[in-house]
Amino acid sequence: MCGNIGVMSTVGIVLISHSRALAEGAAELASQMGVGEVTVRPAGGDGEGGLGTSIDLVEQAVRDADGGAGVVLIADLGSSVLTARTYLEELEDARAGRPGEPETDIVLADAPFVEGSVAAASAAAGGADVTAVARAAHEAYAFRKT
């Protein structure tokens, strides 16, 4: 499930929100920063049209966003964060069951949702690795508005 050998892929970004509209809107904004270069996938709502979070949507979005360079997750409130943490725990368990296979880095950024998403996409478009993309998202906490 990795990208083509010889082609530089960028870090993918998955935006997890309680609201599908919010995840999609933030993905739209963030994608502007890295048009054609960064894959930003929304995972918002409960998967049935309501507010909430779905671990199945998160799983699918990560699969879509991972071009071989890894994925940074950015979550908004409460259950989004808990679902992201649970997803990563499950991933770790699953990977422990198939040692030796090449795996990409998938991390949850500690970041503000909208500003962090834009900063992450911008860093990913510049070729940053997973750690640097997550750091860029985190540093968005420092953007002052007054």
Binding site: E48, I55, D56, S79, T83
Partner: peptide, 15 residues
């Protein structure tokens, strides 16, 4: 529970 609950109680009770 983790997969179907939708809110924070899913990962918490499910986990």
């Amino acid at each position: 529970l983790v997969s179907k609950t939708g809110g924070a109680s899913g990962p918490l009770y499910g986990g």
